[in-house]
Design a protein around this nucleic acid. Structure first.
Length: 868
RNA sequence: GCCCGCUUGAUGGAACUGGUAGACAUAUCGGACUUAAAAUCCGAAGGCCGCGAGGCCGUGCUGGUUCGAGUCCAGCAGCGGGCACCA
């Protein structure tokens, strides 16, 4: 009768094994000092509603590593949680009239079911949500500790303000100068806000980047640029008012500037203050023209396009600055729109000869342009910088004691002189700014502080933690519901007992994600964020995996938080993540109907060479492949894929073809290809199982040629695949498995006992090797092979060294570097033998046309190159 | 503007420290099975020339180093990413 093997029923199989792993708590992690630990972590998701393909890719990669390391004998920690605070929950509250808490927890429930359907080897007993008071109470406590240690402070600063939502926005929430949610032009506002002193660790965080050997070079570079270290000098200039009178009242006497080019001080022709500089503000008090100028500057957005096109404008102040190195010389002082208050001292000296911006400004206001650096070898008298500034290295001119020096030498000399004279000093300046963490938002962790009219700002006593978010809030109006809550913010001052008010701002949600990996080491612990011993055992994270979009924000903040914890003696660790891998995005073609509507992939059908809309059969415009996004509708739902093809297929496809750090193009053809392979594997295994000897059959004394060939293939695959997984070359690992499957499928073992034994061996190896990638199918076949233990609990196979090398090798024969043919030689054949065999190759002889070889190069086991 | 990365068949991509370019997969084409289709199995395939044996060309472009270059060096182009009035 029909011997057609049964089809692999992934629905039933996947559910069954997930249940077994769950019931046996296979992936539960327990501290065990006898075993080496391995902490695998993927960036935890924001519970937006449903998982997307980016999650599937991320968690599949992490799961391969986790399952592989487990099989290699490591005690693996692989936890999952929820980055549960954030704006979308409040938006949902406003739009759908659902409470943020309800919305968030419902999303978590949905997404947890989805993640479970992927068959991930997660320890769910450690699950956490950052919006849970049992989590954020520790965060509040740590904040108080940091505050005590001087790492948290309140500061008045210029911030981005969304006038419609009435909240501060982070820089990354300002797109093209507009609030990302409201589209309203962002204003600059001066507000007193909470900051964390990340700049305290700027230098250390920069230096330690070099030691993060298992981080992508790209990410380290981005962080280095973000921290932005520059060497330079601070220079103090005496100010006089226009009458030339002596330095005046109110600290107007001195102006401190920062420059990276102190070597060009002799080329100074003006000074420029930020419109937000305190001195500007002071002078504006009785100068309506200056007030108008400052207000005008504030209106200009910070978006790149605006900044580029914005003209440089200045407002001349009634001040002169005395050159610190040139007695008697004074230069005019301006307020100028291109000077940033946040960098350096908020004031600069202008050297139009050697700076693009200064040049533009000086040209506009008719200020002198004096060259002080000339290109080497140019006639200095004829050298001019009228049209464009000269910004490269050269020789110093017109600069007294600096003349003739190179730029770097001149910098050192002038700094030494400034320091001698007490009018300046060499300094290091960082681009990095302190982390502004206040948000005028409800769905976040409350900042544990109290404002008292008498005592000022007072920390919430530790015994009163956590400061819980109230549930009874309304979202009928924009703004922060905490601020207008009838009772929540009214409290007694913990110091004087008088009437006081709670801080109604909440923390930036990036704080929540700055230490969750530490919390995973001690879930549920009430008395502290984590148990020291457990934490010391499990941390640091050995392998962290996530999107490159967090290269700066989350990864920088986490490095800071770890150092802040070290500062308050909670740990002795410097770095949280030993290894980092940044995976690429999942992309899909985009589709647009003839009337300009974006279409979902399932609304589109291919018919011959044409792409048509399913509903009306009208042609569809196919756009380039982009990151899957709801707005362009080029999304595929993981649930649907898992339902139609199974989790193993989805996982397999995610790992195939594209290197994991690169973008992956999601295609229907790719998925069906992956699906067909699962079916084929099941068929190959089922057929092979009919002819293999039972488990435990003794190894034959000798092997046939076919058996040896198969054994070699299997054992080489073990070695190669292990290396591929360690190196995150999953696409290559997949290719190797295809090759082994082809070898198994094509072997003729019938009637050859050594070959059937080798077939069982190869099959066992194969099933063990696909375990990390397609765990359900692997577990199913493992049982079919007659095992009673779980594959998930079985060790990784070890290759037999003797089978990793061939005894004959194919050596290429070249004539003048061009391939003429190949010869088969015993491995490690002597050079003379190789040369002799090559020279006898008919194609080479014909190519020689009777010429005598000038030289013969023999690369053992690889190539013989004959040169004439 | 500054910094970084990438560029290999129709397509995704392989190629260890310079040593047989195109593994593996997808799509395509041909064949088998089938009444037919799907599924499956077998086979072909970088380009050009040739009936054929075979030859020539070929890893974005132009040069260089080398017995030998996808790989190293110099210059250029295209694509992508990060930062950006940071003094």
């Amino acid at each position: 009768m029909s011997s057609t093997p049964a089809r692999y029923n992934f629905h039933e199989t996947e559910a069954r094994w997930q249940k077994v792993w769950d019931e046996r708590q296979t992936f539960r992690a327990v501290m065990d000092r006898a075993k080496p630990k391995y902490y695998v972590l993927e960036m935890f998701p924001y519970p937006s509603g449903r998982i997307h393909m980016g999650h599937v890719r991320n968690y599949t990669q992490g799961d391969v590593i986790a399952r592989y390391k487990r099989a290699r004998g490591f005690n693996v920690l692989h936890p999952m949680g929820w980055d549960a605070f954030g704006l979308p929950a409040e938006n949902a509250a406003m739009e759908k009239k659902v409470h943020p808490k309800k919305w968030t927890y419902e999303n978590i429930a949905t997404m947890k079911v989805q993640l479970k359907s992927m068959g991930l080897s997660l320890d769910w007993s450690r699950e956490l949500a950052t919006c849970d008071p049992s989590y954020y109470r520790h965060q509040q406590k740590m904040f108080l500790d940091f505050w005590n240690a001087g790492l948290a402070y309140r500061k008045e600063a210029w911030v981005n303000w969304d006038p419609v939502d009435n909240t501060v926005l982070a820089n990354e929430q300002v797109i093209e100068g507009k609030g990302w949610r409201t589209g309203a032009a962002v204003e600059r506002r001066k507000l007193t806000q909470w900051n964390l002193k990340i700049t305290h660790f700027a230098d250390e965080m920069l230096e330690r980047l070099d030691t993060l050997k298992r981080w992508p070079e790209k990410v380290r570079l981005m962080q280095a640029n973000w921290i932005g270290k520059s060497r330079g000098a601070r220079v103090f200039w005496d100010l006089t008012d226009a009458s030339g009178a002596a330095p005046s009242k109110n600290g107007r006497g001195k102006l401190e500037i920062f420059t990276t080019r102190p070597d060009t001080l002799y080329g100074a022709s003006f000074m420029a203050l930020s419109p937000e500089h305190p001195l500007t503000a002071e002078l504006a008090a009785d100068d309506p023209g200056l007030q108008r100028f400052v207000a005008e500057c504030r209106k200009t957005g910070t978006a790149a396009a605006e900044v580029e096109t914005a003209e440089k404008v200045g407002y001349k102040l009634p001040l002169l600055a005395r050159h610190p190195l040139m007695p008697g010389k004074t230069v005019p002082v301006y307020a100028a729109n291109f000077v940033l208050m946040e960098y350096g001292t908020g004031a600069i000296f202008g050297c139009p000869g050697h700076d693009e911006r200064d040049h533009e400004f000086a040209t506009k206001y008719g200020l002198p342009i004096l060259p002080v650096v000339a290109p080497a070898g140019v006639d200095t008298k004829a050298f001019s910088v009228a049209d464009a500034p000269f910004v490269e290295d050269g020789v110093i001119i017109n600069s007294d004691f600096l003349n003739g020096l190179g730029v770097e030498d001149a910098k050192a000399r002038v700094i030494a002189r400034l320091e001698e004279m007490g009018v300046g000093k060499g300094t290091t300046q960082y681009r990095l700014r302190d982390w502004l963490v206040s948000r005028q938002r409800y769905w976040g962790c409350p900042i544990p502080a109290i404002h008292c009219e008498k005592c000022g700002i007072v920390p919430v006593p530790v015994k009163d933690l956590p400061v819980k978010l109230p549930d009874d809030v309304t979202f009928d109006r924009p703004g922060n519901p905490l601020d207008r809550h009838p009772t929540w913010k009214h409290v007694d001052c913990p110091k004087c007992g008088g009437k006081a008010q709670r801080e109604t701002d909440t923390f930036d949600t990036f704080i929540d994600s700055s230490w969750y990996f530490d919390r995973f080491t001690s879930p549920g612990l009430e008395t502290a964020p984590f148990d020291r011993e457990e934490n010391q055992y499990w941390m640091p994270v050995d392998q962290y995996i996530g999107g490159v979009e967090h290269a700066i924000l989350h990864l920088l903040y986490s490095r800071f938080w770890t150092r802040a914890m070290r500062e308050v003696q909670m740990t002795s660790r410097d770095e949280p993540f030993d290894g980092l891998f940044t995976q690429g995005m999942v992309c899909h073609e985009t589709y647009k109907s003839s009337d300009g509507q974006w279409l979902l992939p399932e609304e589109v059908i291919r018919d011959g060479g044409k792409t048509l809309r399913v509903s009306d059969r009208r042609p569809v415009e196919v756009g380039r492949s982009e990151k899957m996004s709801k707005s362009k509708k080029n999304v595929v739902d993981p649930d649907q894929i898992i339902r139609d093809y199974g989790a193993d297929t989805a996982r397999w496809f995610m790992l195939s073809d594209s290197p994991p750090e690169r973008d992956l193009e999601w295609t229907e053809a790719g998925v069906t290809g992956a699906w067909r392979f699962q079916q084929r594997l099941f068929r190959i295994a089922s057929t092979a199982l009919e002819q293999v000897p039972p488990a435990g059959t003794p190894k034959p004394a000798s092997f046939s040629e076919a058996a040896i060939t198969l054994r070699r293939a299997a054992h080489k695959t073990i070695a190669g695949l292990s290396a591929d997984i360690e190196a995150f070359h999953f696409n290559k690992a997949v290719a190797r498995l295809y090759e082994l499957a082809n070898s198994i499928d094509s072997v003729k073992a019938a009637g050859d006992d050594s070959a059937t034994w080798a077939l069982r061996e190869a099959l066992e190896i194969f099933v063990r090797l696909i375990g990390p990638m397609t765990p359900h199918l692997a577990e199913e076949l493992w049982q079919a092979l007659g095992h009673r233990s779980l594959l998930a609990d079985s060790p990784w196979p070890l290759p037999e060294d003797a089978l990793l090398v061939d005894d004959t090798v194919t050596v290429a024969v070249q004539l003048n570097g061009k391939l003429r043919g190949t010869i088969a030689l015993p491995k490690d054949a002597p050079k003379e033998a190789a040369e002799k065999a090559a020279l006898a190759h008919p194609d080479l002889v014909r190519g020689l046309e009777g010429r005598t070889p000038k030289r013969v190069i023999v690369v053992p086991n690889r190539i013989v190159n004959v040169v004439v």
